[in-house]
Structure formats: structure tokens, C-alpha cells
Amino acid sequence: MSSAVTVLIPTALRPQVEGKESINLHGSSVKQIFASLTGEYPELGKRLFKSDSELNRFINVYLNDEDIRFLDNLDTAVSSGDELSIVPAIAGG
């Protein structure tokens, strides 16, 4: 079943998504959501993914407040109303 999920885009990656702060997408897994997202915004995909199946290791993705690496990674199921936060490491200080 396809669910409506909100993807929260960090400031650093907004230039790759026409400046949007969040994007609503439909899908049943994190993988499906990201496939739609990077299909529409391929430049974002280049920054998020190291390979087709692996996210870059300086970017974490949280489903609500849980890191997807410790759920089922890209195969993690999503439900309507879920939030997917893309969280890059912050280096400034």
C-alpha cells in the first residue's frame, strides 16, 4: 500500500530541490520514497547516495526519530504521516 510521507530537506541540500524545505511523496518503503525523490531531483541523489543501494556515510536518515540503519535500512516500511529527516553532519562552530 502506498503511504504519504514527508521528507525533510536540510538547508545544505535545498539547492538541489528548488529550495523546498520538505517534499511529500508516496511509497511503501524508504527505498520507494527515495526513488521518487531522486527520480525527480537527480542532483540530490548524487549527494545522498554513494552507490545505487548505499547512502553516503556522512548523511543519516531518520524515520521519525529512529535511524533507518538500525531499522531495515532502505527497506524500512513507511506509513502515512511518517517523517523522513535527512540529517547531514554539521561541521561549523
Binding site: 538547508t11 545544505a12 553516503n56 556515510r57 556522512f58 543519516n60 547531514p88 553532519a89 561541521a91
Partner: peptide, 20 residues
């Protein structure tokens, strides 16, 4: 454990590119 790798130069915002 949380961030396995440091962000490479140019891939992350800095105080230079976005201010603080």
C-alpha cells in the same frame, strides 16, 4: 558510530557558504 565518515569538502555547508 553516528557519522561514520567526515563530510568531504564542498559537500556540506560551511560558515563560508551559508553564514551562521
Amino acid at each position: 558510530c553516528i557519522f561514520e565518515h567526515a563530510p568531504p569538502p564542498g559537500m556540506n555547508p560551511t560558515c563560508d557558504t551559508v553564514g551562521v
